[in-house]
Design a protein around this nucleic acid. Structure first.
Lengths: 191, 191
DNA sequence: AGAGCATCTTGACACCATCAAGTTAGGGGC
DNA sequence: GCCCCTAACTTGATGGTGTCAAGATGCTCT
């Protein structure tokens, strides 16, 4: 019997679950100030450990962001799959993910921040890519072979999400990105 | 008679044109390693000046990136205007700009890196926004009032450009982004 | 020639990432 | 029940970075 038990993953050592605590703190910090302002020492301080503790779990600042990006691709794949066989709904799920997980999304598409060849990451990315292709195939099977349609659909939801997240669309606080995204996607998918 | 004369802009002091030299060096460095790896001291070293010289011209690292972003919006406005009254051509010009000025484009849409309220920056951004609206009005005057169409067009070219620049589209070296962009945009603008 | 000022340098401080070496604590074998 | 082994973490040091304050330099204009 350990002094405290967790039903969580696997590392109930000194801290209990430092690895996940660091990832959560990094997510929060990136949401507030962007990935450029991220500091491993600040994360360690928030978690109550020494300044070099993060390096043990992630090796590197880029290692931590690699893990964040991989998590992001997994979450994205799940979100798109859960949206069902409708391409427009898959697109809205994409936007919802990007806005709801701004930190993950930002890191995922800034490959200079992490180790792009990490196996966990490339597997997760492939899973997300398959989810997008599956949504296309389920919704428009006769056009599934057209690479341009997939690229167009991906581009429009990705572009909208990034414009929204970067604040380029002006002050739209109060509005729901998903409903606006629905109207925007309508411009692409009208038959 | 000065010891050396330059027909260039306006600051032929000690260095000659340190301000522009720093901006050019920053552009190159960001193109190679992304904005996160940018170092003012490294820029100063490349320009052959002391480590605190950049601060005098830009006040701040964010100040330098503010100037880069403002320059980017000016260049983008010019490129879109030069494309003429066709919306598809304007979109292709947008993609060309994003790929050809990767550093500017990256910084422009990462507002955490610069001072978003700088007057030069907001003016340049407004000019670019007007250029996009003008392209829409000239190409489809009857639908110029539809905000969703502008948003859809902006989203699709912005998304494609960012996916291309981030390497998310796989290894497409040798292919021309503009021709692929033309096919992608065709999915939106077919009537 | 001399005043004024933008340009740049020097030096310092705090913060940061990363590495090497040491310390702590749990789990498995005897 | 003890011991060793290993994962988890700490401590300390090094070199790099942004930013600030104060001083030096040299063009320009009167």
């Amino acid at each position: 019997m350990t002094s405290y038990d967790r039903s969580m993953p696997a590392q109930p050592y000194h801290h209990g679950d430092l690895r996940n605590a660091l990832l959560a703190a990094a997510t929060e910090a990136i949401e507030q100030s962007g990935p450029a302002a991220l500091s491993l020492r600040e994360l360690a301080r928030r978690a109550g450990v020494s300044h070099a503790a993060p390096a043990h779990h992630f090796g590197d600042k880029a290692g931590l962001l690699t893990e964040l990006a991989a998590q992001g691709y997994e979450l994205l794949a799940d979100a798109v799959r859960a949206a069902g066989p409708d391409l427009a709904e898959a697109g809205i799920a994409y936007v919802r993910f990007a806005v709801g997980h701004r930190a993950h999304f930002t890191v995922m598409f800034e490959p200079g921040l992490y180790h792009p060849d990490d196996p966990h990451l490339v597997a997760a990315r492939a899973r997300a890519d398959q989810a997008l292709s599956a949504a296309l195939a389920a919704s428009a099977p006769e056009r599934a072979a057209e690479n341009e349609l997939k690229l167009a659909a991906w581009s429009i939801v990705h572009g909208f999400a990034q414009l929204w997240n970067s604040g380029s669309l002006g002050d739209r606080s109060g509005e729901d990105p998903a409903t606006i995204a629905r109207a925007v996607i309508g411009n692409l998918l009208r038959t």
